[in-house]
Design a binder for these strands. Structure first.
Lengths: 245, 245
DNA sequence: TGCTGACATATTGTCCGACAATATGTCAAT
DNA sequence: ATTGACATATTGTCGGACAATATGTCAGCA
C-alpha cells in the first residue's frame, strides 16, 4: 500500500507565543540583562506589529516563570527567577503527578547530603554565622511546632546556599514547597526537636571543620530520621503529598 | 521612641493574577483533573466578573508552566506538565543565574546515580527492552556525533523513567536541557563513543540483574567520565553553560 | 535651603465591542 | 459511507477607551 506523503501539521503559532519566545530569547541570550527595564507595552506592540493586548499576553506567559517581574509594580523588569518562583512551578508539576512522599524523600536523599558536602568547601564565615544563629533559634523555639518547622526549613536553605551552587539551589527548590512542609505533621506528632537539633549541630560542626564526609553522613542520617518519623507516625509515606499551596 | 504602627503594603493584586491563582488552585486541589476541559473564556469571564482580555492574561500566566494547554489548539485543557515544560522553565532560571558546567555536574552526580539505583528496583521488562534497543542504536550511530548525543540523552531519560519516580524525573529535567547538550562538545572533540557504550552497558546489566550498587557505581563512573571529558577538552568546566535554547 | 502641594505625564490594569479564522455539529446529496 | 454546504462555538487579534498610579516638574512657603 502506497503511503501518502505526511506533511505534518502546519505549526502555526499564535502571535502571543511568538512574541513571548522573542522576548525570552532576548533575555536568555543576554541581550537584555537582569535588572534592566523592558520597553513599555506600547513600544513592544509597535515593534512587534501587534496590539497591546497581544503583547500583554506574551508578557504574562513569561511572568509566571519568574523571568519577568514588576520593578515598582509598574514598569516591567527582567528578573532572575529565585527559588520561590522555580519551586512554585516545579511543585505544581509534582503535585499533578501525584508525587508521593517517598519519591520526594528519595530526591532529597540525592540532593541534601550533596548540599552539606559542598557547603564544607564553600561556606563563608558569614554563612557559618547564619547557621550558628539558626541553631540558637532552633533551641529557643523547640517547643513551638510551627516555629520549629520554620527554623528547620531555614537551616536546610542556609546549607544549600552555603554550597554556592545555584543549580543545586534551584533543583532542590520544590523540596521547600512540598517535602519539608509534609515534615510538619511529624513534628506535631512526635516532637522530635532534640533529634533535629543534634543532627543540625553535627552538620554545622562538619561544615565549620570542612569535613565533607561527616557533613554528608549526618545529612543522610538526618534524612533517614525524616523517613522514620513519617513511617512511625503512619503519616502516609507512600501516599501523594497533598498541596497546601 | 514609640514605633508608629506598621501597616505593611496594601497587597493589591491585579485581577489577572487573582484569576490565575483561582484557576491554579482549582487545578492543584484536584477540583479539575488533568485532561478535563476548562470553561470557555467567555464563561470564565462571566464567572470572575471581568472581561475576556483579563481572563486571557490569567490563562497565559499558567500556560507557560505547563498546567494548561490546548487540546486541539482550540479549547483549553488541564495538563500535567511534562519534563519538557518543567525543564524549560527551570533551565531559563539556571541560565540567568549563570550556572556553570561544574555546578550542573554536581547536581547530576546527585541525581543520575540515584536514578540508576532506583531503576534496579522498578524497571519493567518493557523498559529494559527499551534500554536494550537504545544500546543497539548507540552502537549503530557511534560515528555520527549528533545521533550519538541524542542516543546518550535518550539512555539517561530511559533510566530515569525506569526509576518510576516522578519527582526525580522532574527534578532532573533541566539536565536534559543544559547538561547533556554541553556534553555534545565533548563528543565532537574526543569521540568517546566506545567509552560511553561500555558505561551504558554496565548500567544496563546492573538494572537487569537488580544490582543497585553496581548501577549506582557505574553511573558515577560515567558521570566522572563526563567531567574528565570536559576538562580534557578544555571546554570550560568552570564557565557558565550557554543556552542554545 | 528644604519641604509641601499642585499639576502634567507616562504606564499599566481593565473594560468594551468587533471581526476573522478555525474546529464542531448537523443535515442533505451523492 | 463519503462528501459538501451551512450554522455554531470558541479562540486569536484588533482598536480604542478610561481609571489608577508612579514619576517628574515647578511654584510656594517656612
Amino acid at each position: 500500500m502506497a503511503q501518502p506523503v505526511n506533511f505534518g501539521p502546519l505549526a502555526h503559532q499564535p502571535a502571543y507565543r511568538l512574541g513571548s519566545e522573542k522576548i525570552r530569547h532576548a533575555i536568555i541570550s543576554g541581550e537584555i540583562e537582569a535588572g534592566e527595564l523592558l520597553p513599555t507595552e506600547t513600544d513592544l506592540a509597535e515593534q512587534f506589529g501587534v496590539t497591546r493586548s497581544t503583547v500583554r499576553e506574551a508578557i504574562r506567559l513569561l511572568e509566571h516563570v519568574g523571568i519577568l517581574g514588576r520593578a515598582d509594580r509598574k514598569r516591567l523588569v527582567v528578573t532572575r527567577p529565585g527559588t520561590e518562583a522555580v519551586g512554585r512551578s516545579v511543585s505544581s508539576a509534582m503535585l499533578m503527578h501525584q508525587v508521593t512522599f517517598e519519591e520526594l524523600w528519595q530526591v532529597a536523599m540525592g540532593l541534601e547530603p550533596l548540599a552539606g558536602k559542598l557547603a564544607c568547601l564553600s561556606a563563608t564565615d558569614a554563612e557559618k554565622q547564619l547557621l550558628a544563629d539558626n541553631l540558637v533559634r532552633t533551641r529557643e523555639v523547640m517547643a513551638d511546632h510551627d516555629a520549629l518547622l520554620e527554623a528547620e526549613i531555614d537551616f536546610h536553605n542556609l546549607v544549600a546556599q552555603a554550597s554556592h551552587n545555584s543549580a543545586l539551589l534551584l533543583a532542590r527548590a520544590p523540596l521547600n514547597e512540598l517535602f519539608y512542609p509534609a515534615w510538619g505533621a511529624v513534628i506535631r506528632a512526635l516532637s522530635p526537636g532534640e533529634r533535629i537539633l543534634v543532627a543540625h549541630q553535627h552538620v554545622y560542626d562538619a561544615i565549620c571543620a570542612g569535613d565533607q564526609e561527616k557533613a554528608e553522613e549526618w545529612m543522610e542520617k538526618h534524612m533517614r530520621d525524616f523517613r522514620r518519623g513519617i513511617e512511625l507516625g503512619n503519616l502516609g509515606f507512600d501516599k501523594p503529598v497533598r498541596g497546601q499551596v
